[in-house]
Write a protein that binds this DNA or RNA. Structure first.
Lengths: 228, 228
DNA sequence: CGAATAGTGTCTGTTAGACACTATTAA
DNA sequence: TTAATAGTGTCTAACAGACACTATTCG
């Protein structure tokens, strides 16, 4: 082919970021309410257009900073969504990302008005739905239900052989907290002794020697993640 | 944000496709020699720009058809590469894909001149290299060494819980052929009885009742892939 | 003490690797 | 019969699930 890249009409390129945390055993994500067409009044993942001189990852980090005031966060690319009419205004291709936050940092993001935290559910053989704290489904803009569905699947699949779980916890955590995160993402309950054995045998954990404080029962040991 | 997608300067959007097969126990890919700048004389993965009215996957399938005359093929999206200067002409973001072919179909692609088949190797902690049949490293254009490195890693990781292996085999195959593919992608040799047990127990295999023909020894049973 | 949760010992069933063995074809 | 590869029986080690048990804290 002897064509030059500039010769063709081209799609716009965006990033969308599913900012997720596990809270009360459920996957939560951050949604912003759209004020304008298209999909005015619907909810969408935070997103933005990739600038001509920034990488895709930098665009995702910028969105995180600008829309959720979040920095220093685990971000990974998910999938690139390119349906022709996913944005009715014009052709827009979006690179979906996942950002993982510990519960405290997620809860600290200012919400209210146009920003909400929603529980993500993935009904069998359907697309994802976002539920308000009250339990009502929130209408999602664009193909963002699809992006959330891919997010849930990716998180469930990667768990066992990656360190995704730790990015969803504070720097020091108990084994029970780690197990809760894994159970939420795997969508099933796990065996306690087997889970503890596996995590410890993999060498991913470093005991801090400290214990949790605010418990009305036996306090658990605190661990740190030892990066491989 | 109140901006419209058309208001921004935007990158060009391309697809690149690693067309791969396992031949003689090694991962092979198809490369085309670039005739023009940039990287004239270097080798690149087949690629092309995404048209304004086609999906990303359709663009990848079009590239496969136009550049390798391949249709009806297993294609999956790999990763989107967005380094700012990956193309010196202008900003080009590329969605990398993997296309899986059985050995006979891969070998049937016309080569010579500007099209070559190259062995892909991934040295420890380095980027991928493409080796000509003679064993010489082929210089790769753009960031295509990175795309090939991601390809090798993806194929190795997905093997055990997906049906990637079958897309790299003819419709009917022997268990030994299947094991050879798995060994090539995993980069290590596997235990024969354990491999056979696992594959059969998963219910992925359907005996055809036929046996291979051209052997100077005991012929192996032929199986078909039973999609789950 | 009771309540509550942390953490462990141990049994059992499943699975993977090792290895030797038998089976079947062509020449 | 020999060469070559297909395919199996079986032992053992590693690992996961189940379940009951002990340990430690608060009140």
């Amino acid at each position: 082919m002897t064509t030059h890249p500039a010769d063709h009409p081209r799609p716009a390129l965006a990033v969308d970021v599913a900012i997720v945390a596990v809270i009360a055993g459920a996957l939560q994500t951050l949604l912003v309410r759209r004020g304008e067409a298209p999909f005015a009044g619907h909810w969408s993942l935070p997103g933005g257009f990739v600038r001509i001189d920034e990488t895709i990852e930098a665009a995702a980090l910028r969105v995180l900073r600008d829309k959720a005031d979040v920095t220093r966060v685990h971000v990974e690319q998910l999938y690139t969504f390119g349906a022709v009419s996913r944005d009715p205004r014009m052709r827009v291709v979006s690179v979906g990302h996942i950002a993982l936050l510990p519960p405290d940092r997620f809860a600290a993001i200012a919400t209210g008005g146009d920003v909400a935290q929603a529980r993500v559910a993935l009904p069998a053989s359907g697309s994802a739905v976002a539920l308000s704290p009250g339990g009502d489904p929130l209408p999602l803009a664009f193909d963002h239900a699809e992006i959330l569905a891919a997010t849930v699947q990716r998180l469930g699949g990667k768990l066992d052989w990656s360190d995704v779980g730790f990015a969803l916890l504070p720097p020091e955590f108990t084994l029970r907290q780690l197990q809760d995160v894994h159970e939420a993402l795997a969508g099933r309950s796990l065996n306690k002794p087997a889970f503890r054995r596996r995590m410890i045998d993999r060498g991913w954990l470093e005991p801090t020697g400290r214990r949790e404080a605010e418990a009305s029962h036996r306090p658990a040991e605190l661990y740190r993640h030892r990066p491989t």
